[in-house]
């Protein structure tokens, strides 16, 4: 069986800075796969490479066996990859639910003709997209904002809204970059439940997170990055006992 996401010898340099260097790993379908490491380790850069926002300096990424080298982010989305951002990317010029409906973009077939005349077929599609988006907002726990502008939402709710938007695209694999950052303990616990629910649906989850309790509890495997390089890779148990990790990162 080929891995869902396979990374081989990946390199990304910004000028002289090697943000990611010689990174290889594989994520099997259905796993919760976490990437941890100190700030500046290259985690976000790795996610940006995988989702096609950055072009690798060297190395290869395969999604479902297909090389992603020439694919734009929107083409990767067509192949079932979606993500959230550490620096939240919400369209503040839209309502909350429109942000989630945007996630239905690939599911909604529309042409200019049905759009300009707002034909019944378009209205039906829009209504069902609206319903689905409302369900998803409920699902991720920001249902109370269904009628709100995105700009009126709290930080924690916006983070969930981003997840709802990604889920609306019906991804095979979802990448979450520090979803718990800035959340309090209760919100973090709720987030953990949410990630479990997502994984239980059969969606592969890739997670960058600093909260060790959350990461260790939820992950099938972990990748530890340090200065762009792989420090360790394995199950939570293996990582916990890895002497390099203990020395360098967990602080022994």
């Amino acid at each position: 069986m080929t891995a869902l996401v396979e990374v081989k010898g990946l390199d990304k340099a910004f000028g002289g800075v090697h943000a990611v260097e010689g990174v290889s790993f594989a994520v099997e379908a259905g796993q919760v796969y976490s990437v941890i490491g100190p700030n500046g380790a290259g985690k976000t850069t790795l996610f940006n490479l995988i989702t096609g926002l950055y072009i690798p300096t060297k190395g290869e990424i395969r999604l479902n066996g297909e090389s992603t080298a020439r694919l734009e982010p929107n083409q990767l989305a067509e192949r079932g990859m979606c993500r959230t951002f550490q620096q939240m990317q919400i369209c503040m010029n839209m309502t909350a639910i429109e942000n989630v409906m945007l996630g239905r973009h690939l599911q909604l077939k529309s042409n200019l003709f049905t759009t300009l005349f707002r034909l019944p077929s378009l209205r039906r599609d829009e209504e069902s997209a609206h319903r689905r988006a409302a369900e998803l907002m409920e699902y991720v726990g920001c249902g109370q904002y269904v009628g709100a502008e995105a700009s009126a939402m709290s930080y924690g709710a916006l983070k969930r809204l981003e997840i709802a938007r990604a889920l609306a695209a019906e991804p095979k694999v979802i990448l979450l970059d520090e979803p718990a950052a800035g959340l309090n303990a209760t919100e973090t616990a709720a987030l953990e439940d949410l990630i479990r629910k997502i994984a239980d649906q059969g969606i592969t989850v890739m997670l960058v997170e600093h909260d060790m309790k959350l990461v260790m509890g939820i992950s099938d495997r972990l990748l530890v990055l340090d200065h762009g390089r792989v420090l360790a890779e394995g199950t939570p148990e293996e990582i916990r006992q890895n002497p390099d990790v203990i020395a360098a990162y967990l602080g022994g």
Partner: peptide, 18 residues
């Protein structure tokens, strides 16, 4: 929505397939 998302956040738009 796709048009407005280009304004709101071009990266967000692109990662959901726009």
């Amino acid at each position: 929505r796709a048009l407005r998302s280009v304004h709101g956040s071009e990266v967000a738009a692109s990662v959901v397939g726009v």
